[in-house]
Design a protein around this nucleic acid. Structure first.
Lengths: 209, 209, 209, 209
DNA sequence: TATGAATGAGGCTTCATTCAT
DNA sequence: CATGAATGAAGCCTCATTCAT
């Protein structure tokens, strides 16, 4: 299931269209009703196709959610390079800030879907793993940064880079969840500032001087 | 619902016993099967009473979960005072460490139930609010500490105390969730160390000199 | 059941009070919720007594309804003599009008209960019989009048007195049902006039001259 | 509900067949067990289809009863023209008699169902309205006749045509209910005679001469 | 007599999935 | 590939009635 759909890909253009329509429809329905409260028939209705057609392309509700999340994943992971001013190219704080901003913005774009992801993560171990893997990507990226800074003597050497990265990634993702999925309505700038400052402080970043 | 059960409290000792048995049974069943997959009849069977008796005391599965969580809440919030060595009574790091350790230990005791709480938080806005309120208690406690340290010139004055407290509480609770609810199996001491060090660094704690 | 309660009458004054309270409460509840939608516990709650006490006095919901209807019966059957002006003592039209008016007024007083009676008559053959017996009392009373008028040459001799009486009683009771139970809101005077005129015409009443 | 079923109509012939089978089955079951005592599973069993198929076509037991009654309505309202001998074409008594006979015969054909209709009318305001509307059709038809006769000087001018028509329609329908639904076993001819004679007398019909 | 907790059968309803057309 | 009717297992919840105290 987690593998992205057990069915073979559509052979015809018409099939491709139906499959795509179903994914769009599923996202709409999931965001509107949540995963548990959504019915397959709502999805097919939204996609203007017959109930049975669903099973031509997907094995189950979980399966199509998997596809929906995979599409969103792209947007979350590769939102375009975070923009860093050239002159700050080597300023770790600027890099961290840019990454945080990029993350928050991507999260905001997909907020409703993130809520759905949390929902299914609560229900199914399979989706918990998806979420975890997704988190690990960020954590490892960050761990690398921390490790690098430590080796340059710019970060607290006592910290385990991966453990710290996981914790801080968790912190940021939690902030995003509260703000955008639950609707806490904190201004983006405050969010970025707080996240970045805590991050920078937490790893004990020192000016490179 | 959150108010603790729509039904009137039992008038007799026998009733009180049955009600209590149902709550214990419900916790067992929820921890074993999760919330969504649990059936009312499993709970009544576990409590050795008739199906109908359930409705003498609770309105729904949600209602009894509410009661179960309320009981666990006590343990989470008042786990006994975190132990701080007398000579460290005014050492902020020691205080933070003690608080983190107490939190992690309480979380571990209630790990399975926390998983259930996450599950229902994903499903129902009502339970999301319960979780949020619960989080706010910690956040405010921590905000107070940060504010105090700032006024003594010991913490980063640029941070908004509440925003920082929320973010750091979120970080710690996320760590606990991953470790105890999802089973990441990180040794307690590492966990406490990482959480505390990140915390302390993040707020820019300076030695009081 | 129809016999008015299988249980023995209360032995104590306290018991008598409880029994009476239950009947009053039952009428209130039945009128408010209808028979099918009423619950025994609502009745005992309304009567401020325990669920179990109900069965000290009644065998079932049907049984207490029986008692409630029996009480109302009194009021319906003996509403006090219909008032006929002395000088009209032998004017059949005046007698019929007075009887109709008395009936309508009694019906109005018990309208909600009549709705309940119709409801249970639809459900249970036993209560259909109660209603039928109740109707027969009126029909026979009227049949006697018709027979009398026929023998004096004042009414259509072709009519079967009982058949006509039943039909006309049915007509009047239906009018009352529509007006008071279903709420058709026709002024009492119009109702009495129409009923009486149709009655009088229908039996072919001739002036005695 | 009264609008004839919330679900969309079947799109295929097969669906139409199933839907029709359910209506036939429902009528059978309702007539046998009454409305309250009938179970949905009895209906689907009688129609030889799965429980769930019921909900493909109907929302509830009420909904299918609605459909059953609507079908019977046709038969009741358009039983074929009441037969009036050509030479009596303008004899009001003959017309009234023919109408009464037609009504009684239609009622007899649907007697069991009428009992069910009374039952649900006792339970649900919605069905009371259906019955009322149904009654109004007859009442208005009769009111027109009375009005016509009055204008030709052939009927009691003091009567309100609609009020009288309602009362007399009520009388006839009550007679039919007692005879056919409750089983009073009065010969059809007597019934027709009594109803007609009372009708004719009641409106004060005079020979046109 | 009063109390009120306990009982438990059984109906209604949902909806993911299948399959004949 | 599309269609949409058919399937049927499964769970919640009600409430009249009983019975121990």
């Amino acid at each position: 299931m987690t593998t992205g759909g057990a069915r073979t890909r559509p052979a015809t253009a018409r099939g491709e269209r139906t499959r795509a329509a179903l994914i769009v429809a599923a996202r709409t329905v999931f965001e509107r009703d949540g995963f548990s409260d959504s019915r397959l028939t709502d999805i097919t209705a939204e996609a203007s196709c017959a109930t049975g057609s669903f099973y031509t392309y997907f094995d189950s509700k979980e399966d199509i959610l998997d596809a929906v999340l995979a599409e969103a994943q792209e947007d979350m992971l590769h939102p375009g390079m975070p923009h860093v001013e050239p002159e700050s190219a080597d300023d770790p704080t600027a890099i961290i800030e840019a990454a945080n901003r990029a993350y928050f913005e991507a999260y905001r774009r997909n907020a409703q879907l993130m809520l759905v992801r949390e929902q299914v993560a609560g229900i199914s171990p399979e989706f918990r793993d998806i979420r975890r893997q997704r988190g690990e990507v960020f954590a490892e990226r960050n761990a690398k940064l921390i490790r690098d800074l430590q080796s340059r003597g710019l970060a607290d050497p006592d910290l385990d880079p991966l453990a710290a990265a996981r914790a801080l990634s968790g912190m940021v993702s939690r902030m995003a969840y509260h703000c955008f999925a639950l609707g806490d309505e904190i201004p983006m700038e405050e969010l970025v500032f707080t996240a970045t400052r805590l991050w920078v402080n937490a790893i004990g970043l020192r000016k490179s001087s």
